Amino acid sequence: MPETGQILVLAGRFDPTCDLVTSELNRRGVPVFRADMADFPLRLTLAASLDGDRWNGTLASDRRTLDLASVRSVYYRRPTRTRLPDGMSADGAIGPSAGIPSSPTPSSPSRCSTG
């Protein structure tokens, strides 16, 4: 019986080797969600929580949304570096100067997104 779940592929947008791997997975009917970390956090958003040993939440691009609980494996192949927007530092420190609250309010989900 084939395994169920999706494969999360983190790779650069222009990666011919990864293109071949992704094409073969698609040919075999394996669900694939490909993303480039260069799109985070402006065009790729993450809303996640850890519940015991399981991740819950979503990874969303402008075209698709991945349910993190459905990920069975990750193929990490040289994704492009993340480009942070003005007002957000590499250590994750954000604040009022960035127009983003420094901590989520009880009525809002924890989300790393700028828009």
Rank of each mutant, 00 (worst) to 15 (best):
G12I: 04
T22Y: 01
D51T: 12
T82I: 15
A47Q: 15
V74W: 00
L50P: 02
F14W: 07
S107R: 02
P16S: 02
S103H: 07
N26R: 15
R54G: 11
C112T: 13
T114F: 12
F33H: 13
T17V: 10
E3T: 15
I100M: 10
R81Q: 01
P109A: 15
L44D: 03
R111K: 09
L59R: 08
G29C: 12
A47E: 15
T105D: 13
A48I: 11
G57E: 04
D91Y: 10
P31T: 10
R43V: 03
R81S: 02
D91K: 03
A90S: 09
R34G: 03
P41L: 04
G12S: 15
V21C: 13
T22C: 07
S107P: 00
Q6I: 08
G99E: 04
P16A: 03
Y75W: 12
D62S: 15
T17R: 13
T114C: 14
S49P: 09
N26M: 13
S97C: 05
V74F: 03
S108R: 14
S103I: 05
A47H: 07
C18H: 03
N56W: 03
P2Q: 08
D91H: 10
I94C: 10
G95D: 09
W55E: 08
A60G: 04
T58M: 07
I7R: 11
L46K: 06
A69V: 09
A98R: 09
I7E: 03
F40C: 07
E24T: 15
R78M: 02
G57S: 01
T114E: 09
S108N: 12
D51F: 00
A35N: 02
T114R: 13
G29T: 08
L68Y: 08
L42V: 14
C112N: 12
V30E: 15
D36Y: 08
R81M: 04
R27V: 09
A35L: 05
D15Y: 02
A60H: 01
S73C: 09
P104K: 14
A60C: 06
A35P: 01
T22S: 05
P109C: 13
R72H: 01
V9Q: 05
G115N: 11
C112R: 12
T58G: 08
T17W: 12
P85V: 05
V71P: 05
F33D: 08
V9M: 04
L10G: 12
A98N: 08
P41F: 00
S113I: 00
S70W: 03
S61E: 05
L59I: 10
G115C: 07
F33P: 06
A35D: 00
G5Q: 00
P16N: 00
N56D: 11
G5I: 03
W55P: 06
A47R: 15
P104I: 11
Y76L: 11
R28F: 04
L46H: 02
P104E: 10
P41E: 02
T82C: 15
Q6G: 14
R81Y: 00
T80N: 06
F33S: 10
G92Q: 06
L25R: 14
N56I: 06
T45V: 07
D15R: 07
L46P: 06
P106D: 11
C18D: 06
T4C: 10
R72L: 01
R72G: 04
G95V: 02
G115A: 10
P31N: 08
